[in-house]
Design a binder for these strands. Structure first.
Lengths: 342, 342
DNA sequence: CTGTTAGCGCATTCAC
DNA sequence: GTGAATGCGCTAACAG
């Protein structure tokens, strides 16, 4: 409840001096500085965020728009959120949470200067929030790359490339019939950018390699997975290599295949496109392309902060994927290949 | 960028009039009111949150402290978060996110008046944040009941009662050897209040009923589950009835039991203590005590808001549990009971 | 290196 | 039913 004025009086200096020891925006002699700090300590002073926001025109709060849908993987969302909050703190910023569906919220917090900038997750191809966000005069970064970013900056994992290197890995191992088990139907239908890009990357790389391929969505439950596997692996497709991009399915994958009398990797090789922890937390770790959720979240905040002060051109950053071979991929049955060829 | 003054000029009235049409704190004639609203619309005016916070001493922001641990179930956390954000909006409040480990954050946002109140999740028995929070002069509500609430209000699901009715249900069905599969070890060790209470409720009710019982923690992976089941069910304990309080295990439960040649419910009856969606989203729905995460989150916000203006006594609210029998519990093998006896 | 001072945009108390 | 004036607590430009 003590104000800066109280501190100034107690320390026998002027208000601005107190302000400046706090902000460090001009040099203060060691003596006065220590007197001010002593007074601050003595009075238990802490600055009033609202007053500061009014005078400085900066709230030190970032908005984060998170999806709270059923079909997004919550653990990945949490990783993003954790990364964003942690990074924001490094920039002395707090994080205000907005939900996907609260369209008015974006406009409100931005026009009322509740936030200094925004990070928006789970972008879809033609996202109605983007033109809205672009109008508001605050720095914003999209996690995901929409069809038209309206001049906003984007950061994303290069899902298309992730898909392509997964395909190439399988092809190099001699697999000639491969399949993609993708996100739930709902993600595809709303054209979540990651889902679209994984699929197009998969199809493109498969065609280039000249292998037989097919792909399908899959819900996150054992029944749906079993059906997908029946269609793609034991069925007419007869795939021997699988790319799986569906975090929630990973814990079910091994058991479900086992029930169908299929062994990994002897009968079917599997590449996962999944967050690092999902890929390696299994008893037998997956050959996988890791989605570095933490890095992406951190970078998103850094990009917002970069644009906060200096005017800066919009950019699209894609995080380059890397495949790590673990125990779930081997040379195709009947193939002469004993390992990847480069 | 238009200010209230601009609006006042454009409407040919004074600033205070504009303020009052916005707040509704005094009666305004229809004519002036519509002129003001027209001016607001024309100028695209929106109030500056910082200025409002300074003048009114209210930020219209609630703080929410969420756990970002490994051992908490993220989907449940998300449900709470969604409920809190949604409810907060009904009270014209935004939500600022703080993480568990950011101890200084609680103090910062509260002493700087960044937030008007706080909701804190994942309380442990002797939570170091509680004395800290109690000192700050802002309304706060704990989700969970600690040993000493330091005068703060608490809301929680009555986990002890949930556990007791689960036990009684099994006992009524004739089960004489029962077991509890609980939260991961880490939750128990840090004395998360829900984990402690589920266990004590389980043991108390088992003793009262005079049945054999045992309980143990279980990590959220198939191997750990298999080991727990070997110990509790097929091992010397020979439990025929199981209470499971570990959301992340539920998707694995059926498969793991199947691998061990155990059928539900013929060989073992299972009661789940889990969020509603987890309990019913399975192919065969569980007999369960539902954790109403949404209700709890909503109530937490309501309690904070109640304490925002009027001084109000601290209280502890416990949400009463209810068990819904579905297909995973039947009379014990060899029991004469054909159903629950009341 | 330090002090003085004029706002930042809004809420609210008085006066009418 | 309306207006004028003051202050909320802080920042930053200006003056020294």
């Amino acid at each position: 409840m003590a104000t800066m004025n109280d501190v100034a009086k107690a320390a026998g200096v002027s208000t601005s001096t107190v302000s400046y020891v706090l902000s460090g925006k001009r040099t203060i002699s060691p003596e006065t500085k220590s007197q001010v700090l002593a007074a601050i300590d003595k009075l238990g002073y802490s600055p009033h965020a609202g007053a500061r926001a009014l005078a400085s025109n900066r709230s030190n709060v970032l908005g984060l728009v998170v999806p709270l849908r059923e079909d997004v993987n919550v653990s990945v969302v949490m990783q993003f959120v954790a990364a964003v909050v942690t990074t924001a703190r490094n920039f002395q910023q707090d994080v205000l949470l907005l939900t996907q569906d609260d369209l008015g919220g974006i406009e409100r917090v931005t026009s009322q200067s509740v936030v200094d900038g925004l990070v928006m997750m789970d972008i879809v191809a033609r996202d109605p929030r983007i033109p809205l966000l672009a109008k508001m005069n605050k720095p914003a970064v999209l996690i995901g790359v929409p069809d038209d970013a309206h001049g906003l900056s984007c950061i994303d994992f290069d899902f298309a490339a992730a898909s392509r290197i997964s395909v190439r890995h399988l092809v190099d191992l001699g697999h000639r019939r491969i399949a993609l088990i993708g996100s739930p139907q709902a993600s595809l239908e709303r054209h979540a950018t990651y889902a679209d890009r994984v699929r197009s990357g998969f199809e493109e790389a498969s065609r280039t390699a000249g292998v037989e391929f097919s792909s399908r969505a899959c819900e996150a439950n054992p029944t749906a997975l079993a059906e997908a596997l029946r269609e793609l692996v034991t069925g007419p497709q007869g795939a021997t290599g699988l790319v799986v991009h569906n975090e929630a399915l990973m814990p079910l994958m091994r058991d479900t295949l086992a029930e169908m009398q299929l062994r990994i990797p002897e009968d079917v090789s599997v590449v996962a496109i999944a967050p690092t922890d999902v890929a390696v937390s299994s008893t037998v770790p997956w050959t996988a392309v890791s989605i570095p959720a933490h890095d992406i979240g951190r970078t998103a905040v850094e990009m917002v902060m970069e644009r906060m002060h200096e005017q800066r051109a919009a950019e699209v950053r894609l995080v380059v994927p890397a495949l790590v071979q673990r125990s779930t991929t081997v040379a195709a049955p009947g193939s002469s290949k004993s390992g990847p060829v480069h």
